[in-house]
């Protein structure tokens, strides 16, 4: 089923979705766009390239409260915090980010390791994928083509959206998406030419080229493994790295977290917060020993984890080439260039 609405009227669609549940959509901030919970339908802004921070926070928020507790002299109380399973609409996700959810599922939602918070949110969420605007130039940092993702891939979305001039075309992809589309009465049926435009966009998406590293993932994994001990190489590529957490925090595929207790006057919360392998104290052990004291070791871990260990363990690169880490890095470290250089060694 293909439906459409004028982009101008997007706030009406937003208002309908807000009635049905929580709406997460891109809003404009000072520095660029980011996904946020929408309180005012006017705020939804589809005029963006990609958000600064990935939408992973929809399922894996920067801060997740698990338990509220009280520590008294004698009694200790604890209460588990439940996830609100109200329907969520994640609106306007680029194809590369949609792909990232399925990679993250390996860690939070696969047989044996089901994270109740992630999986419940995942179940409650309808994903509105959104093709890149093929008339806009590609950002120099992007390289999702190398990961087998194209600018207009509907895979993984429940509903896929394509911009057609002043209109937005919405296509139901999964039964869940179809069902929802049928209920959205602000939408009108799309015409024949819209159908054609939609199909063509999917095709043309393949021609919308990002940087491309034409190499099999196993070759990359092996190569990185082989150069693991090449300290000169790693020192060189990491010489600018500040060892901050910007790249991992904006990344849709970084999933490291820390569990901490914040207690004040005997009352507190046990929560999960994002952590980053680039932090100095990430590997600090209780004994005081730190196996990764140098910046190059940390950057090597970050890259190898994504492009080597992850391939070996799970058969897929843990990166979707969205280019966020490169764009957000204060010193322009580019993971693509590093992998490219490693391959030349």
């Amino acid at each position: 089923m293909l439906k459409k609405t004028a982009i101008e009227k997007i706030s009406q669609l937003a208002a309908v979705l807000m009635e049905k549940g929580t709406l997460l959509a891109p809003v404009k901030e000072v520095a660029g766009h980011n996904f946020a919970e929408i309180n005012d339908p006017q705020k939804v802004d589809l005029n963006f390239y990609n958000t600064i921070i990935s939408p992973k926070g929809a399922f894996f928020p920067p801060k997740e409260d698990f338990i509220k507790y009280k520590i008294g002299k004698t009694i200790t109380e604890a209460e588990q915090i439940k996830v609100d399973s109200k329907p969520v609409f994640l609106f306007g996700v680029r194809p590369c980010d949609v792909k990232s959810f399925s990679i993250m599922d390996i860690h939070f939602n696969a047989a044996g390791i089901i994270d109740p918070y992630w999986s419940q949110r995942r179940k409650a969420t309808t994903i509105f994928g959104y093709a890149y605007d093929l008339n806009q130039p590609v950002d120099a940092a992007d390289f999702y083509n190398s990961l087998g993702i194209y600018a207009a891939d509907p895979e993984g979305s429940d509903i896929f959206m394509v911009k057609k001039d002043k209109d937005l075309l919405l296509k139901g992809i999964t039964p869940k998406g179809e069902e929802l589309l049928a209920q959205l009465n602000t939408l009108v049926d799309a015409g024949k030419d819209d159908e054609k435009y939609y199909e063509e966009t999917l095709k043309k998406g393949k021609e919308y080229k990002t940087r491309f590293l034409c190499i099999d993932q196993d070759v990359i994994a092996k190569k990185l493994e082989a150069v693991f001990n090449n300290n000169d190489f790693w020192t060189k590529v990491s010489s600018a790295c500040l060892s901050c957490g910007a790249c991992t925090f904006v990344c849709p595929n970084c999933y490291c977290f820390d569990i901490c207790d914040d207690t004040i006057f005997g009352k507190g919360t046990r929560r999960r917060v994002w952590d980053a392998c680039m932090f100095t104290d990430f590997t600090l052990e209780a004994s005081g020993h730190n196996p990764r004291t140098q910046v190059y070791q940390r950057l090597r871990q970050k890259i190898n984890h994504k492009y080597s260990y992850h391939v070996k363990k799970y058969g897929v690169i843990s990166c979707v080439g969205c280019g966020r880490c490169t764009r957000s890095c204060p010193v322009n470290i580019d993971i693509y260039s590093i992998v490219e250089e490693a391959l030349k060694l």
């Binding site: 901030e29 921070i53 920067p62 500040l242 060892s243 901050c244 957490g245 910007a246 991992t248 925090f249 917060v273 994002w274 980053a276 932090f279 204060p330 010193v331």
Partner: peptide, 12 residues
């Protein structure tokens, strides 16, 4: 409130 605590400010 916007801060995501990536500590890039401190590291830069």
């Amino acid at each position: 409130d916007k801060c995501i605590r990536c500590y890039a400010c401190r590291k830069a």
